[in-house]
């Protein structure tokens, strides 16, 4: 465990909690892509199946359970409890265009051709693009609530911090994971445009709105 890894995990946790609290406190999921949240629930489910097969640490087990629990709680709030506030018309990204190619790629390029390993690989590839329905929704409506931008910033920061963690681990442990690195770079790059808007607009107190 190094500082980049720990702050990455905490940033990820902060993102998940910010989103849950935003929906819970405002009693509304307006502006949030339910499709992205379903994809994240699928990501955690397929990645953390090793909860049943191996124990790594108490930290590892607790964080996995929290991530999975929060992901499903978020999906429940969007599609059940606050369904009336869900903006389905603007959440029109076709997720099959992500899930099908990602599924194919995880069967073709993985560390080991076994069910658990393929599902883990699927989750890594899927996570890298799971935010696209959310970004698509913002580009469609042309704006995002400030709290939603804080959520996106923490979520993007998490994978960027993991990149530094992997550089650290390569130098000090001589170990690297090419699948995670390539997917992590793709994932971080997808946030770059948003990071720019976040720094130039939101941090200066302005609402994030895109030119028409």
């Amino acid at each position: 465990m190094n500082i980049f890894r720990l702050t990455g995990d905490l940033s990820h946790l902060a993102a998940i909690i910010i989103l849950l609290l935003k929906i819970w406190k405002s009693r509304s999921c307006a502006g949030i892509s339910g499709k992205s949240q379903i994809l994240f629930a699928l990501v955690f489910t397929t990645r953390y199946l090793d909860l049943f097969t191996s124990f790594i640490s108490l930290y590892n087990t607790c964080m996995k359970l929290i991530y999975i629990g929060c992901a499903y709680a978020t999906v429940y709030l969007i599609y059940a409890k606050f369904r009336a506030t869900y903006d389905g018309n603007h959440d029109s990204f076709r997720v099959e265009f992500l899930v099908v190619p990602v599924g194919g790629l995880s069967v073709l390029i993985n560390h080991d051709f076994s069910p658990l390993e393929i599902l883990w690989t699927f989750s890594i590839y899927l996570e890298s693009v799971a935010i696209l329905p959310q970004l698509f929704m913002i580009s469609k409506t042309g704006e995002a609530e400030t709290i939603t931008t804080h959520y996106l910033f923490c979520l993007g920061l998490y994978r960027a911090l993991y990149l530094f963690n992997w550089i650290w681990r390569f130098y000090f442990e001589g170990f690297f994971d090419m699948i995670a690195i390539v997917a992590g770079v793709v994932q971080t790059v997808l946030y770059c445009d948003f990071f720019y808007l976040y720094v130039t607009k939101v941090l200066k107190g302005k609402k994030l709105s895109l030119p028409a």
């Binding site: 990820h12 090793d50 790594i56 964080m63 390993e117 993991y162 992997w166 170990f175 699948i179």
Partner: peptide, 10 residues
């Protein structure tokens, strides 16, 4: 340098 899955990561 060895390539493989970093199993302790989240």
């Amino acid at each position: 340098e060895e390539e493989g899955k970093l199993k302790d990561e989240l």
